[in-house]
Design a binder for these strands. Sequence first.
DNA 1: TGAGTATATGTCGTATTTGACATATACTGC
DNA 2: GCAGTATATGTCAAATACGACATATACTCA
Lengths: 109, 109
Amino acid sequence: MKTERLRKLRAAGWKVGTTRDFLNLSDEEAMLVELKLTLADALKLTRKKRGMSQIELAQRMGSSQSRVAKIEAGDASVSFDLIIRAFLAAGATRQELQRAFSIKEKVAA
Amino acid sequence: MKTERLRKLRAAGWKVGTTRDFLNLSDEEAMLVELKLTLADALKLTRKKRGMSQIELAQRMGSSQSRVAKIEAGDASVSFDLIIRAFLAAGATRQELQRAFSIKEKVAA
DNA sequence: TGAGTATATGTCGTATTTGACATATACTGC
DNA sequence: GCAGTATATGTCAAATACGACATATACTCA
């Protein structure tokens, strides 16, 4: 795992220690976190592709700019439900959502 | 949409009226519900394929049999996070999870 | 540089989701 | 029919996620 991603995890409030500690999380937990970050990145991309601001997206989904920011930052307080809602509200199709789920880490640790 | 699925939605506590009403839900909301039910079905299949009882799965994921039952029933009180957690705890790979996301309705309404 | 816009971060009261428990129903072999 | 096992349903206190707000920081363009 790259240092940058680790930094991002910590910044987002995840209880992550060293790389070693992270690897010691149960596979499920690790995969869950990875999935969320992957979706968060995909959401950000989708939103920008549509030339949409966080405020616009927030309005579309009945939320607030700050929460959208947290979603995209992979904040620990954000659920899958909210990410997926945001994704769909950003205009993504089910197929795009599915594709986002399949994107793996760009770089192996 | 088939009547059976509609019945299932109501039974699960979703605020669903007639087929017409359902179709009037925002596309996002409808897709969200559909996705949850799809995942719920896939989870049940995965669990049974591994010869696992709801109690076993519950223990693996630190939850209870009743909640696993609700997950598989597509209960309205269950989040994506919990479904995905269950899915992974049932031993599904990320690829299987992704595949589950891609499964569409078997029958068009 | 500064104004204008976009995004990030921290906090909080409220709403939703949770595991746990009790208990009901379904299924299976006898 | 009756056990024994699996699954379903209802409820609730505690945990978590939520939108909202304030405010900080970043980015653009003149």
